[in-house]
Simulated assay, not measured.
Amino acid sequence: MTAPPFRDVRGRGFSRRSTLDAAWAWIDGRVAAPSARPLPLAECCGLVLAEAVAALGDWPAADRAATDGYAVAAADTLGAGSYNPVPLTGAVAVVAGDPLPPGCDAVIPYESAQAAGPFVEAVDAVAPGGGVERRGAWMAAGSPLLPAGRRLRPADLGLLAAAGHRILPVLPAPRVRLLLAGGPKAGAPEQLGDMLAALVRRDGGVVEAVAALPADMDALAETFAQPGADLILSAGRTGTGPDDAAPPALAKAGSLDLHGIAMRPGGSAGLGSAAGVPALLLPGEPMAALAAYELLAGRAVRRAAGLPAALPHATIQAVTARKLVSEIGCLDLHRVRLDDDGKVEPVASPGWPGLAAAARADGFVLIGADSEGVPDGAPVTMYDFTMYDFTMYRFA
């Protein structure tokens, strides 16, 4: 595919911007999950199952005690009561998980028995099968356990171990190279590395490296072109200033296919490739970087991990407490909170920089490029900053 001509916006500004739909189509057309790989069970947490998994055998493998007590023949306890203790000459002490001894079909708990010298007496009757987990009660050989596409949780590993699995076919986590281009200006502390690395991990990726580089086109281009990563994220120096070297560096290393997205914040984001690897450019302003990650880079990481591309946030249906102002021709990400009545109100405009407002927000509302805003009292969908829709991750 021939790379589009590079349009240098430094000192000129953006003559046009691509739609978010066009950016999503670019990501969906270039980012895909890798081939499945067999990995030991202990290394699979958080990865996506490539194939459905079934039980290799019955579990439990035999009838076993479900509680601590005495394994008995239930018929031997008939008529037992607190005023009529029944001796149990064949009782065998067991703990939960022990296989039932031959001739036993129930477990009487300690509370329903009492010691009488060297013997045990039942003070309550027990029915056949009482206190027992039957063979195959939790799973039978060949029964389905987990579907393909499920992102594995810690509890899943225990279930799979019980089912006899030691190696699983999974989609390996994508290796993400994270570049911080130019660093913060005016002595401000670095704010992007930890935040973006955490977001990459949330979406199923592994950060290959976090490299801070000067705003130098040649140094950036060289790092873009280095092999080893499945995906490259670069944050900073994407705008129209003279030191905004990330876009020309990506164009030099490979291609800059889209630069400038009709969204606020994050409108100076870009997409391209280097050494055959998709690369996404995020703005250096922290809130713009967060927005561009959520709406662009996160989609790429999730697709590379074999997860659904859609936003992972849990959603809340609410109404606005007051109008959310937007701009025609640009998708706006509004940081919002829920007031005491459960209504949505803005905590900052889409153009307001900094992460302080995001910390005060409960989530965000997206207003489409064809809208001038949302009036007060109108229904909206809020994407929750603090909760994630795990059905999107196929946990359910």
Rank of each mutant, 00 (worst) to 15 (best):
A249D: 06
H259M: 13
M263R: 06
A305G: 11
D218A: 15
G266N: 08
R299C: 13
T240A: 15
A275F: 05
T238L: 08
L250A: 07
L258H: 13
P286F: 08
A251P: 07
P283H: 10
L282A: 13
P242K: 06
G298A: 10
G260R: 01
A309E: 09
A309R: 11
S268A: 15
F224E: 00
L307M: 12
L231Y: 01
R299S: 10
A219L: 11
A225E: 01
A225P: 00
Q226N: 02
G270K: 14
H259F: 14
L281Y: 08
R303A: 15
A292V: 04
P308D: 15
E222R: 15
G254Q: 00
Y293R: 09
L307W: 12
P227W: 04
P283G: 11
M263P: 03
A245H: 08
A246R: 00
P278A: 09
D216S: 14
A291D: 08
F224S: 02
D230C: 05
L231T: 02
D230A: 10
A300Q: 13
D257L: 12
L231D: 01
A249T: 03
V301Y: 01
A246W: 02
T238D: 11
A269W: 03
G266S: 12
I261M: 10
L271A: 14
V301K: 03
P247I: 10
A219C: 11
P265D: 05
A253L: 07
T238I: 06
L256I: 06
G236T: 02
L250D: 05
T240L: 01
V301R: 07
S273W: 15
R303G: 09
A291W: 05
M217Q: 14
A274N: 05
L280G: 07
M263K: 05
A246E: 02
G272N: 12
D243G: 03
A229P: 00
R302V: 07
A225Y: 11
V277P: 10
P286L: 09
P308I: 03
A246H: 04
G254E: 00
T240K: 03
A305Q: 10
A275K: 10
A274T: 04
D216G: 08
G284K: 08
R299H: 11
A235R: 05
D216C: 09
P278N: 07
G241W: 04
A221I: 04
Q226L: 14
G266T: 03
A309Y: 13
A305Y: 05
L307C: 02
G241P: 13
L220F: 00
D243P: 01
A235S: 14
I232N: 02
G260A: 14
P247V: 04
S234K: 00
R237N: 14
L295E: 15
